[in-house]
Design a protein around this nucleic acid. Structure first.
Length: 531
DNA sequence: ACTCGCGTTGGGTTG
DNA sequence: GCAACCCAACGCGAG
């Protein structure tokens, strides 16, 4: 019996390494590759015009690549649960395939669609291809709980063996016994949307540095893989956050949208490593893909992973609520040129280096402004081309010393950190041209420049560029004490904790945290189930 | 139950 | 220029 198949693209916007697409093509009479413009997304999250453009370009490229194998992409408008019953009937669908997506909204959505499919006698096939491993297998292997350290994570993966190899790329041969039917009305009904249709202002677009799509992803991949020495020597902490052109691959937006398969990336790197000395996780290129996997695992295994409240592994911190400071940070007006340059790059270009993310995330939270990491998470979710739910939540928890990372006394300096790799402040001058006439001596701290120098530079601090909104040396010291107090409350010290000084009595014995079971207790139940 | 080594990427001073 | 050390000190996970 031959099927009429829908393959539903969500992430995974590619033909290569797409097992669910291959499954749709098997014993198939009519194939309908679709993407659904789901109104849930713009209603529930801000998305920058830059990321909308990336998505549109990815969809266009997908349509072009499907055309090459005698198919097309149908972009459908509407809620998935409303769209599918109509499509099932209209196209006499018997099979629906898609890639497994582990985010909370996606899981609920997919469960709802699966139910609808069953009601319409439509077979559903789901395949793992967004991640290197099936995430629930990782969790099961670790006795039902996600590892909280990278070392432990690696141990768990070692027992699972290497990731699966990517599957074959579909060709015209795969389509020879089936067809995709589209009519002359295709473009008005199923065409890839424009920015205007999505209510986006194209005048707000930044430079097109990272065009969307699988074709661009694969050519970028090959471009970097040609640099075999660089690939083998890659150590993330040694790459520069403030180089004038990216010091890393910037493949992250492509991996996020699935224009590039993580497994294809993994095995391509493995080919380069073959027989050569190379760096290792956590700092190597393989290591970077494992970090992604690490946070995906945490996102699946830890309830309320994108929040502090109800997140049992997250330190509960009494973050402040200074709206002016949050806005200044978000708009690059903190008065710290290094921070403001990074936020400007983020807003205009949609990508910043990982260490630049560290600097601004630390500054917003435990370092200087004492604002909740959830606020930073929202801004990154809007502006980053590579914004990915688990990675964004996980990294914000990391940098704010809320989860995974606990050495809160290690604070990034908004002045010193950037100097290590850009003494002259060329990066600052690129993104904050108002400061371009300041000499290296003052470029990271322009408020210290004498008035006469400010005048000569054509930039008066406090008028043309803001004064620092906080004094880093004072704020960071105070915030370390606040973190100390938050940790003391967490471990349940019986001693009095003085909130202002953060002094706690170290002799206080540990006891259960008030208001809920500890993480260990929560996970114990799972463990006994497995054993 | 308890200790202990260590953790992808800090800053600052000293030698 | 660079390595060693201090700062004041966290939790995870192995043993």
């Amino acid at each position: 019996m031959k099927h009429n198949s829908i393959h539903w693209f969500r992430k995974g916007l590619r033909l290569h390494d797409n097992p669910a697409l291959l499954a749709a093509m098997k014993d198939c009479a009519e194939l309908y590759p679709i993407f659904i413009l789901d109104p849930w997304f713009p209603r529930n999250m801000k998305v920058s015009v830059n990321r909308w453009r990336f998505l549109i370009e990815a969809l266009k490229d997908l349509d072009e690549n499907l055309k090459k194998i005698n198919s097309r992409l149908f972009v459908v408008r509407g809620k998935p649960t409303e769209v599918f019953p109509l499509l099932f009937k209209k196209w006499k669908v018997t099979r629906l395939t898609f890639e497994v997506d582990t985010e909370p909204y996606s899981r609920q959505r997919d469960a709802d669609v699966e139910k609808l499919a069953a009601e319409h006698n439509v077979q559903v096939i789901q395949k793992v291809s967004n991640t290197l491993y099936a995430i629930d297998r990782i969790i099961a292997e670790n006795n039902g709980k996600p590892p909280l350290t990278y070392v432990r994570f690696q141990t768990v993966l070692a027992s699972l063996g290497p990731p699966k190899r990517p599957v074959q790329v579909p060709t015209q041969e795969n389509m020879k016994d089936c067809c995709t039917l589209w009519k002359s009305s295709y473009n008005e009904k199923y065409g890839v949307p424009t920015l205007e249709e999505l209510g986006q202002d194209s005048l707000k677009l930044g430079p097109r540095l990272y065009p969307g799509g699988e074709s661009e992803a694969l050519s970028r991949l090959e471009l970097h893989m040609k640099r075999t020495t660089w690939v083998c020597n890659f150590k993330k902490p040694e790459t520069e956050p403030n180089s004038l052109t990216p010091s890393t691959t910037v493949l992250s937006p492509y991996v996020k949208f699935g224009c590039l398969s993580a497994r294809t990336f993994w095995w391509r790197i493995a080919e380069i490593y073959q027989g050569k000395k190379h760096s290792d996780p956590p700092v190597s290129l393989h290591g970077q893909l494992l970090w992604r996997e690490f946070f995906y695992t945490a996102g699946v295994g830890i309830p309320n992973f994108n929040k502090m409240e109800g997140n049992t592994v997250c330190v509960q911190v009494d973050w402040g609520n200074n709206k002016e400071h949050l806005q200044a940070w978000s708009e690059g007006r903190t008065g710290y040129p290094f921070i403001d340059a990074i936020m400007t790059q983020l807003r205009t270009e949609g990508w910043i280096h990982h260490l630049a993310r560290h600097a601004v995330a630390c500054f917003l939270t435990r370092g200087d402004l004492w604002i909740s990491w959830e606020e930073g998470q929202k801004v990154f979710e809007e502006l980053l081309l590579d914004a990915d739910w688990s990675l964004n939540a996980g990294n914000w928890q990391w940098l704010s010393a809320s989860t995974f990372f606990h050495q809160f006394f290690r604070v990034y300096s908004p002045v010193a950190f950037g100097k290590k790799t850009d003494k002259n402040g060329d990066y600052i001058k690129k993104y904050l041209p108002i400061l371009k006439k300041f000499p290296a001596e003052y470029i990271y701290e322009p408020w210290k420049a004498p008035r006469s120098l400010q005048e000569r530079a054509g930039c008066i601090i406090g008028k043309d560029y803001p004064k620092p909104i906080v004094e880093h040396d004072v704020a960071s010291k105070q915030n370390i004490q606040r973190m100390k107090a938050a940790y003391a409350r967490r471990s349940g010290s019986t001693a009095e904790v003085d909130k202002d000084s953060g002094q706690s009595n170290k002799n206080g014995a540990k006891r259960k945290v008030a208001g809920g079971p500890s993480v260990a207790e929560l996970f114990k139940k799972n463990k006994s189930k497995k054993d």
